[in-house]
């Protein structure tokens, strides 16, 4: 059930990317898709009644091994979020350039104004 809802969130982002005309809306759709994929990776690694994969000195090792959630997707997602920020900055800078050149965020207008 959680996976299906997460997939639905991804589809909302895809819908925004393919149907919207405004460049800012398209960037927002990209951001939503990125959220959905990050959340999906973390959902796969979750263990019921789990604990965070961080040891303390008083914790029992065997208990920790039995209960801790998957650390591998967390390590991948933590970099993926920062990279998502870099992609967002790149996309926004391209959008600003397009706005300066054509005076609009509308992609249909930009197609008409080509040249």
């Amino acid at each position: 059930m959680e996976f299906i809802l997460c997939f639905f969130l991804l589809m909302v982002g895809l819908y925004a990317v393919v149907t919207k005309r405004n460049l800012v809306k398209i960037i927002i759709g990209l951001a939503i898709m990125e959220y959905a994929i990050n959340l999906f990776l973390i959902l796969i690694g979750y263990r019921k009644d789990g604990i965070a994969p961080i040891m303390t000195s008083t914790m029992d090792r065997v208990e920790f091994l039995r209960k801790a959630v998957d650390p591998l997707p967390q390590a991948l997602v933590i970099t993926s979020i920062v990279i998502g920020f870099g992609i967002l900055a790149l996309a926004v800078s391209i959008a600003i350039r397009i706005y300066e050149r054509f005076g609009t965020f509308d992609i249909n207008e930009i197609k008409k104004l080509k040249g």
């Binding site: 800012v24 990050n38 959630v69 933590i78 920062v82 967002l88 926004v92 706005y99």
Partner: peptide, 30 residues
């Protein structure tokens, strides 16, 4: 989901991304 590292990162990056998106869109007239 017991991922505190990612929660911290997501929160801080979200704030900065919001600032950038608002500054990019707010001063445009359209």
């Amino acid at each position: 989901l017991k991922a505190p590292d990612i929660a911290i990162t997501q929160m801080v990056v979200e704030v900065l991304a919001l600032i950038i998106l608002i500054r990019a869109t707010l001063h445009r007239d359209l």
